Simulated assay, not measured.
Amino acid sequence: MTITDIIDYVRGLGGVLVLSPAEGSAHPEISWGDTFFYYAPDGEVPTTTQPFATIVTKNYPGDELSRLDRPGAYRVNIAAGTQALRDHTTAGTDPSVPDTVHAHPLYAAAGWLAVVDPAERTADTLRELLRTAHERARQRYERRA
């Protein structure tokens, strides 16, 4: 799966705002080149919630275990919830192994999962997790409305 494949898939779930900060934008430089997915049917970046999924293309400070400093490496992060975390991960796995569903190196306790360089083995599971995260975000949005 390419980054474009993932962005197109998530955009097709409906009500999704895709934020892709670029060089020179008003967003923090560390975010340039990454992608953030919000459930925002009004098209406005929510101020009271986090994205339900992200694609990061580099290591962030304190988050180097996925080894995104390798050429072309990226990680999809998904807030699919603690049940999905239990259903799809195994404790103690190396979070830098590509095409494997892992507990997010920093945010697993909040129900976040991660896939480095998703490909054929994780494609269906990744889509399922993204649908779950989207649905959870939609439900939160509707409760707050």
Rank of each mutant, 00 (worst) to 15 (best):
R70I: 09
Q83F: 02
G15D: 03
A53H: 05
I78H: 08
G14F: 00
F36N: 14
P51S: 15
L17H: 11
N77C: 06
T48R: 07
A79I: 00
T48I: 06
A80S: 13
G14A: 01
L19F: 13
G43E: 03
R75I: 00
T47A: 13
F37A: 09
T48W: 12
Y74N: 05
N77E: 06
G43Y: 06
T57R: 14
Y39H: 10
Y38R: 06
Y74W: 14
R86H: 10
L19D: 15
G14C: 02
V45S: 02
V76L: 02
Y74D: 01
T90M: 12
P21R: 06
Y60F: 12
P95W: 08
G92T: 00
R86Q: 10
D94S: 11
I55C: 09
P61G: 09
D87A: 13
T54W: 04
P21F: 11
G14Y: 02
G72Y: 05
Q50M: 12
A84Y: 03
I78D: 05
D42K: 07
T48G: 07
R75A: 12
G33A: 00
L19E: 14
P46L: 08
E44R: 12
S20E: 15
G12F: 06
D87T: 04
D94F: 10
A40F: 00
D87V: 01
T54C: 12
T49E: 06
L19V: 15
P41W: 10
Y60S: 04
G12T: 05
T82P: 02
P95V: 05
T90D: 09
P21T: 13
D34W: 04
E44H: 08
A80F: 03
P71C: 01
T47G: 15
V56P: 07
E44Q: 12
E44F: 07
D63N: 09
L17K: 15
S66G: 11
T90F: 05
G33M: 00
R86G: 07
G81K: 08
T89Q: 05
D69S: 12
G81F: 07
P41S: 04
L68S: 04
G81R: 06
E44A: 13
Q50I: 10
E23Y: 00
E44N: 10
Q83S: 11
L13H: 12
L17V: 05
G14T: 02
T54G: 11
T82C: 04
D69I: 06
L17T: 05
S66V: 03
Y60W: 11
G33S: 02
G24N: 01
G62W: 12
L85T: 13
A53K: 03
K58W: 01
H27S: 15
P46G: 12
G72N: 08
A79V: 01
E64H: 10
S25R: 04
G24T: 00
L13F: 07
R70A: 15
R75T: 04
N77T: 02
D87H: 08
A79E: 02
G62N: 15
D94A: 11
D94K: 08
H88N: 15
N77H: 03
